[in-house]
Amino acid sequence: MDVGGTWIKGALIDVASGIPAGTVRRLQTPAGGSVDAVADAVDRLITELEAGSPGAAGRPVGIAIPSIVQHGVARSAANMDAGWIGRDVQSYLQSRLGRPVCVVNDADAAGLAEARYGAGSARKGVVLVLTLGTGIGSALIVDGRLVPNFELGHLEIGGFKAESRTSAVARENEGLDWVEYAGRLQRYLAHVEFLFSPDLIIIGGGISVCSHEYLPRLSLRTPVIPAKLENLAGVVGAALQATAAGKEIIQNT
């Protein structure tokens, strides 16, 4: 499951291939995004998915949420009700859904999926996945293992929070052309490169489909490439975290 501010997406995922074993379904996120209302929607979505695949009943569920997640507890809430903050969401959902549940930050889920099946497949070392959308989501994968809650959208550059100036929405809101936007992205990525020296940077989010407009204008030591899994990455990454295969992530790639 991938819980967003607008939609909740879900699918049965074959974790050997990262491919949905059936239809990808979605429900609108309940207005206000309270924990209880989201749990009800997730429960309905699971029921729909299991109706088409009876053998899936009782299987573990991975749920990506737009929150910092520390040991199952939500520490923030982006476009969701403030009631998420400080809540042991993982324990609550496990009890509510009556099955094993693994809750993960949405950017972390997308990063794991991209590293296992997408643009970072078979790449060892330090892989940084950035999703450029309403804000900037980030995931750091080191030799196949996730460093959780790596919030690089909140770095301060030039007196501004990075995502307020460098996200896809910031580009749209300010009417920046691609040359102007690439300049901002260059400054941000050069700073990130200096701090963390990644071996690969993967750019995801909706803006990744326009990568030909800005990637050729960047000048970094680190290779920068577009993501491949697009909007399915969060669902796939959540499934990985919910299975034994997810614990070892890309160790056997």
Rank of each mutant, 00 (worst) to 15 (best):
M1N: 08
V3C: 08
T6W: 05
K9E: 06
A11D: 07
L12V: 15
I13L: 04
V15I: 13
A16Q: 09
A16N: 15
V24G: 15
A31F: 01
A31I: 06
G32W: 00
D36Q: 10
A37T: 05
A37L: 08
A41Q: 08
L45I: 04
T47Q: 10
E50C: 03
E50L: 00
G52V: 09
A57G: 14
G58T: 12
G58E: 13
P60F: 13
G62V: 09
I63M: 05
A64H: 15
A64I: 09
A64G: 12
P66R: 05
H71S: 11
A74K: 06
N79A: 15
G83K: 04
W84S: 04
I85P: 03
R87Q: 06
R87I: 05
V89A: 11
R99G: 02
D108S: 00
L112D: 05
A113R: 06
E114A: 07
L128S: 11
L128P: 14
T131Q: 01
G133L: 08
S138L: 08
L140C: 11
V142W: 02
N149M: 06
H154Y: 07
K161N: 13
A162E: 00
S167A: 01
S167L: 00
A168M: 00
A168D: 04
L176S: 05
E180W: 03
R184L: 13
R184M: 12
Q186P: 02
R187V: 15
H191G: 03
E193K: 01
D199I: 13
E213N: 09
P216N: 03
S219V: 14
T222E: 10
T222D: 08
P226C: 13
A227E: 15
A227R: 04
E230T: 12
A233F: 13
V236R: 02
G237S: 04
A242E: 03
K247A: 13
E248F: 12
